[in-house]
Each structure stands twice: as structure tokens, then as C-alpha cells.
Amino acid sequence: MMGLVRDRQCHFNFEINEQEDSKSIEASHYSFTKRQKGSFTRMRRKYTASDSSLFYRKFIPVAMGIRFFVMLAMLVTIFIYFSNPKAPSNTNGFYCGPCPKNWVCYKNICYHFSNESKSWNQSRASCLSHNSSLLKIYSKEDQDFLSLVRTYHWMGLIQSTSTGSWMWEDGAPLSSEVLSLIPVQKGNCAVYGSSFKGYTEKCSSTNAYICMQKSYRTGKLEAPSVPSNTIHP
């Protein structure tokens, strides 16, 4: 009888020990799994942060490069616009055209802005070869786009050696209402600056120049007439 009780007690203790061992194994497995998940999460965060940092290191220089080229393109466009103004082909009902290639048409007048530097006589000869004359300012309203010019160009304004008065190639006298002439150096010729201001200069100096010719509805291009008594420097 006592042996049977001991056997049952031993069996009961063995079952309890097995249950405790099983719970201990499950707890250890749970603890290991939890640590493994935590390690995986930290590793994933580490690689995610590393990828994100690498992406931004590559993206920022590319974005700055694109921004630089966009700003450069804008500056080049603005420079071209102000250094070589182009007017609309038809303004306030004025007929415009046809004009030679690379000429600017504005209010029935064709203009050519040269990129080469020549003396006044050479510039005038170049304009004559294109059936045109050097620039004449006859109206601030009709030639308002010339205020955009920012560099010096020869124009068809010369000083009479006999009277000292200034006149255009066609013999018309200079009017202070259309152009302010500022004496800079002794000379019988003048360059156009900007905002309807001219500057005296020696005719032998070299500058860019502006040619002009009228464009009629018939399509014929004609230069302003130049009288035979025009004063040549």
C-alpha cells in the first residue's frame, strides 16, 4: 500500500516537472523569438535609414544641378533679349515686313543690329550695301523699343564742319525733343546709348552700328534718301 502511494506521488511529481520544463522551454523560445524580432527590427531600421541617407545624398546634388541650369538658361534668355531687342511684327496697326533675314521689324521699319565693330564711314557703307542707312531717331513713340538697347552703336548723326550743327544723314536737323546729345569727346559723329541719349565720338573709332530701312506694303525695301550735300566726316 505504501509503495503504491509512493509510485503515484513520484508519477505526479514527474508530471509537474515535465509541465515546468515545458513552460521553461516555451518561455525561453518566446524570449529568443522576441530578441530575434527586436534584432531584425533594429537591423531593418538601420538599413532603411542608410538607404534613405544615400538617396538624399544623391538627390540633393542632382536637384541643385537642375536648378543651376534652369537659372543659367533664364539669365541667358534675359541677356539675349536686352542685348538684341526684338519687337512685335505688327503694333498699333502698323504694317511690318518683309525684312531681310536676321533683321528686326517694328512699326514699318526694318532694323539691323550689327555684332561687328567698324568706323562710322565703314558702318555707313555696310548699311548702304543693304539698301539702308544708319539709325535715325525721328520719334520716341514710334521707336520706343530702342530704349532697350544697352550697348553703343553708330547712328547716322554727324556734325557740320562749317556751322557746327548736328544733322542726320538725310540732312534733317537734330531735335532735342527726340534725342539728347551728350558731349563725351571731340568728334563729328555720335553713337546711340540708351533711353534716347547720344554721345559724341571720333568718327575713326570703332563701334557696332544699327542700320534701318522702311518697309512698304508693296514689299519693296527702301533706304531713306541721302541728299548730295550731306556732310561726311
Rank of each mutant, 00 (worst) to 15 (best):
G193V: 08
N90E: 05
C99R: 07
V104P: 02
T206Y: 06
H153N: 08
P100M: 11
Y111V: 12
N92Y: 05
P183T: 15
G97Y: 03
S195A: 10
G198I: 13
S126K: 03
L157D: 00
N102R: 10
N207S: 12
Q159K: 04
S175D: 11
V104S: 10
N90L: 08
K197V: 10
L146E: 00
V149E: 07
S165Y: 13
K186D: 11
S119K: 02
E141F: 13
S129L: 10
L146M: 04
V184E: 10
P100A: 15
S176D: 09
L135E: 06
F145W: 14
K186P: 08
S114G: 04
F94P: 00
S89L: 11
V178S: 06
S204L: 06
W166A: 00
K202F: 07
L174N: 02
S139L: 12
L148D: 10
S117I: 11
Q185H: 08
K197Q: 12
S147W: 15
S175N: 09
E141K: 12
S204W: 03
P98E: 09
L148N: 04
S162H: 11
N108A: 10
P98R: 07
L179S: 00
Y138S: 10
C96A: 06
H153K: 06
C99H: 04
G193P: 03
G193D: 06
I137R: 00
L157R: 00
Y111R: 03
Y95I: 07
W168G: 01
N92I: 03
Y138E: 14
K118C: 10
E177A: 09
F94H: 03
I210K: 01
L174A: 01
S180F: 12
V104D: 09
L179G: 01
S205Y: 02
C189T: 04
D170I: 02
E116F: 13
S114M: 02
N207C: 09
S180I: 11
S160M: 06
F113I: 08
G156T: 09
L128S: 04
A190F: 08
L148P: 04
S129D: 14
Y111H: 12
D170R: 04
K107S: 05
A208G: 15
T200E: 02
V178W: 13
P88W: 10
K202G: 06
K118N: 13
P88C: 14
S204M: 05
M167F: 11
L181T: 13
Y199W: 11
N121A: 15
S123E: 09
C127Q: 00
L134I: 05
A190R: 07
N207I: 14
P183G: 14
V184G: 08
I210Q: 03
S129Y: 08
W120M: 06
G187N: 02
N102W: 12
Y209M: 00
L146P: 00
G164A: 01
S123Y: 09
E141P: 14
G198E: 05
A172I: 08
W154N: 01
G171T: 05
N121S: 15
N108V: 12
S205F: 02
S204E: 07
Q122W: 05
L148Y: 09
F145I: 15
D144Q: 09
N188I: 15
V104M: 14
L128E: 02
